[in-house]
Computed example of a mutant assay.
Amino acid sequence: MKSKKNTACCGIYCPDCIHYKNKYSVYALLLKEHLIEINFDKYAKIKSPFGEQFQKYDEFEEVLNALAGTECNWACRVGGGCSGVPCKIMECCFSNEYEGCWDCPEVEGCDKFDFLAPRCGQMPKNNIRKIQKFGLQHWIEHRDNFYIWQK
Protein backbone atom coordinates (compact mmCIF):
# COMPACT_ATOMS: atom_id res chain seq x y z
CA MET A 1 0.00 0.00 0.00
CA LYS A 2 2.70 2.43 -1.14
CA SER A 3 0.22 5.14 -2.14
CA LYS A 4 -1.26 5.35 1.37
CA LYS A 5 2.17 5.35 3.02
CA ASN A 6 3.36 8.22 0.80
CA THR A 7 0.16 10.28 0.95
CA ALA A 8 0.07 12.84 3.73
CA CYS A 9 -3.18 13.59 5.54
CA CYS A 10 -3.39 16.89 3.62
CA GLY A 11 -3.34 15.20 0.20
CA ILE A 12 0.29 15.88 -0.54
CA TYR A 13 2.22 13.03 -2.18
CA CYS A 14 5.43 13.20 -0.12
CA PRO A 15 7.87 11.88 -2.78
CA ASP A 16 7.04 14.98 -4.88
CA CYS A 17 8.30 17.34 -2.14
CA ILE A 18 11.64 19.04 -2.69
CA HIS A 19 12.77 18.04 0.81
CA TYR A 20 11.91 14.34 0.53
CA LYS A 21 15.08 12.24 0.33
CA ASN A 22 17.00 15.22 -1.06
CA LYS A 23 20.75 15.37 -1.62
CA TYR A 24 21.22 19.06 -0.92
CA SER A 25 20.84 18.60 2.86
CA VAL A 26 23.69 16.12 2.92
CA TYR A 27 25.91 18.42 0.84
CA ALA A 28 24.94 21.46 2.91
CA LEU A 29 25.83 19.64 6.13
CA LEU A 30 29.21 18.59 4.70
CA LEU A 31 29.91 22.16 3.59
CA LYS A 32 28.82 23.53 6.96
CA GLU A 33 31.12 21.12 8.81
CA HIS A 34 34.04 21.95 6.53
CA LEU A 35 33.55 25.71 6.93
CA ILE A 36 33.47 25.31 10.71
CA GLU A 37 36.59 23.16 10.61
CA ILE A 38 38.57 25.85 8.76
CA ASN A 39 37.07 28.77 10.75
CA PHE A 40 35.70 30.35 7.61
CA ASP A 41 33.47 32.65 9.66
CA LYS A 42 36.59 34.45 10.93
CA TYR A 43 37.94 34.81 7.39
CA ALA A 44 34.61 36.22 6.22
CA LYS A 45 34.57 38.90 8.94
CA ILE A 46 37.85 40.45 7.84
CA LYS A 47 37.27 43.39 5.56
CA SER A 48 39.68 43.13 2.69
CA PRO A 49 39.63 43.37 -1.09
CA PHE A 50 40.00 39.56 -1.12
CA GLY A 51 36.74 38.89 0.66
CA GLU A 52 34.29 41.76 0.34
CA GLN A 53 31.68 39.38 -1.05
CA PHE A 54 31.86 37.41 2.22
CA GLN A 55 30.54 40.29 4.35
CA LYS A 56 27.09 38.65 4.21
CA TYR A 57 28.44 35.35 5.47
CA ASP A 58 26.09 35.34 8.48
CA GLU A 59 23.10 35.37 6.12
CA PHE A 60 24.68 32.62 4.03
CA GLU A 61 25.31 30.57 7.16
CA GLU A 62 21.66 30.92 8.15
CA VAL A 63 20.52 29.63 4.76
CA LEU A 64 23.13 26.84 4.86
CA ASN A 65 21.84 25.75 8.29
CA ALA A 66 18.29 25.70 6.95
CA LEU A 67 19.36 23.61 3.95
CA ALA A 68 21.25 21.19 6.18
CA GLY A 69 18.23 20.84 8.46
CA THR A 70 15.55 20.06 5.89
CA GLU A 71 16.46 16.46 5.22
CA CYS A 72 13.32 14.34 5.21
CA ASN A 73 13.71 10.61 4.74
CA TRP A 74 10.19 9.47 5.59
CA ALA A 75 6.77 10.30 4.24
CA CYS A 76 4.66 12.31 6.70
CA ARG A 77 2.33 9.45 7.55
CA VAL A 78 5.10 7.08 8.64
CA GLY A 79 7.62 9.71 9.75
CA GLY A 80 5.44 11.59 12.22
CA GLY A 81 4.90 14.67 10.06
CA CYS A 82 6.85 16.82 7.65
CA SER A 83 10.52 16.26 8.49
CA GLY A 84 9.28 14.50 11.63
CA VAL A 85 7.13 17.38 12.87
CA PRO A 86 3.33 16.98 12.79
CA CYS A 87 1.42 19.96 11.40
CA LYS A 88 -2.02 21.18 12.50
CA ILE A 89 -3.60 19.28 9.58
CA MET A 90 -2.12 15.97 10.69
CA GLU A 91 -3.02 16.66 14.32
CA CYS A 92 -6.61 17.43 13.30
CA CYS A 93 -6.92 14.23 11.27
CA PHE A 94 -5.56 12.10 14.09
CA SER A 95 -7.72 13.76 16.75
CA ASN A 96 -10.82 13.17 14.58
CA GLU A 97 -9.67 9.65 13.67
CA TYR A 98 -9.62 10.49 9.94
CA GLU A 99 -7.33 8.61 7.60
CA GLY A 100 -6.84 11.95 5.86
CA CYS A 101 -8.63 15.19 5.09
CA TRP A 102 -10.60 13.38 2.38
CA ASP A 103 -12.67 11.88 5.22
CA CYS A 104 -13.57 15.29 6.65
CA PRO A 105 -16.93 16.81 5.68
CA GLU A 106 -15.56 20.33 6.30
CA VAL A 107 -12.37 20.10 4.21
CA GLU A 108 -13.47 22.56 1.50
CA GLY A 109 -13.78 25.45 3.96
CA CYS A 110 -10.83 24.45 6.14
CA ASP A 111 -8.25 27.20 6.72
CA LYS A 112 -5.57 24.85 8.04
CA PHE A 113 -4.23 24.64 4.47
CA ASP A 114 -3.37 28.35 4.29
CA PHE A 115 0.29 27.84 5.25
CA LEU A 116 0.77 25.58 2.21
CA ALA A 117 -0.67 28.03 -0.34
CA PRO A 118 2.45 30.16 -1.00
CA ARG A 119 4.32 27.12 -2.36
CA CYS A 120 1.61 24.63 -3.23
CA GLY A 121 -1.38 26.76 -4.23
CA GLN A 122 -4.53 24.64 -4.34
CA MET A 123 -2.67 21.36 -4.95
CA PRO A 124 -3.46 19.75 -1.56
CA LYS A 125 -7.22 20.30 -1.81
CA ASN A 126 -7.20 19.37 -5.51
CA ASN A 127 -5.45 16.13 -4.56
CA ILE A 128 -7.99 15.49 -1.80
CA ARG A 129 -10.78 15.80 -4.37
CA LYS A 130 -8.93 13.28 -6.56
CA ILE A 131 -8.53 10.89 -3.64
CA GLN A 132 -12.26 11.18 -3.01
CA LYS A 133 -12.97 10.50 -6.69
CA PHE A 134 -10.41 7.77 -7.51
CA GLY A 135 -9.67 6.31 -4.08
CA LEU A 136 -6.43 6.22 -2.12
CA GLN A 137 -5.03 3.38 -4.23
CA HIS A 138 -5.57 5.00 -7.65
CA TRP A 139 -5.33 8.75 -7.26
CA ILE A 140 -1.56 9.22 -7.68
CA GLU A 141 -1.51 9.27 -11.47
CA HIS A 142 -4.08 12.11 -11.32
CA ARG A 143 -2.27 14.28 -8.76
CA ASP A 144 -1.45 17.95 -9.29
CA ASN A 145 2.10 19.28 -9.54
CA PHE A 146 3.52 19.89 -6.10
CA TYR A 147 4.72 23.47 -6.42
CA ILE A 148 3.02 26.47 -8.00
CA TRP A 149 6.00 27.10 -10.32
CA GLN A 150 5.77 23.63 -11.86
CA LYS A 151 3.72 23.33 -15.03
Rank of each mutant, 00 (worst) to 15 (best):
M90G: 01
V85K: 13
C93E: 03
A68C: 11
G69Y: 00
N65K: 08
F115Q: 04
Y43M: 09
K42P: 04
P49T: 01
G69I: 01
C110L: 12
D58R: 03
E99F: 08
K45A: 15
D58H: 06
N73H: 11
D111E: 14
F113M: 12
V107H: 04
P105V: 10
Q122L: 14
F60M: 07
E97I: 04
N73F: 09
G121V: 06
I89Y: 03
G80T: 11
K56G: 12
S95F: 02
E61V: 00
E59P: 04
Y57I: 01
C87M: 06
C110S: 11
F54N: 14
Y43Q: 04
K42N: 07
C82Y: 10
R77S: 09
Y43E: 09
Q55W: 03
I89N: 07
G51Y: 02
E61Y: 12
Q122H: 15
K125T: 10
E52C: 10
F54S: 06
C104G: 08
D58I: 09
N65I: 04
C93F: 02
M123R: 14
P124D: 00
K56I: 11
G121C: 06
P105I: 05
G81F: 03
C120E: 14
K47I: 13
C93S: 12
Y43C: 07
K45H: 12
F94A: 07
C87T: 05
G51Q: 02
N65E: 07
Q122W: 08
F54K: 01
C82F: 00
N96A: 04
P124E: 00
E97V: 02
S95G: 03
F54D: 05
P118D: 02
P124V: 06
Y57P: 01
C104L: 08
P105G: 07
Q53R: 15
A75L: 07
A68I: 09
D58Q: 10
C87N: 10
E71I: 13
C104S: 11
F94N: 13
C92Y: 13
P49S: 01
E108Y: 08
C120W: 14
E59Q: 11
S95C: 05
D111M: 11
Y43T: 13
I89D: 10
W102R: 09
G100H: 06
A66C: 07
E62M: 07
V85D: 09
K112T: 02
C82A: 02
F113I: 09
K88C: 11
D58G: 08
C87G: 09
F115G: 02
G121I: 04
I46G: 00
V107F: 06
E97N: 14
S95E: 14
A117E: 14
C110Y: 12
V78Q: 11
C72Q: 06
F60P: 01
E106I: 05
W102K: 07
G100R: 06
C82P: 00
K56T: 12
P118W: 08
F115V: 10
G109F: 11
A117P: 02
K47S: 10
C87S: 06
Q55G: 12
E91M: 14
P118R: 09
S95V: 04
F113N: 03
F113D: 04
L67S: 06
K56D: 12
F54E: 05
G69L: 01
A44F: 12
C101M: 11
G121Q: 06
C87A: 03
C92P: 12
K56A: 13
P86T: 05
K56H: 13
L67T: 01
T70C: 12
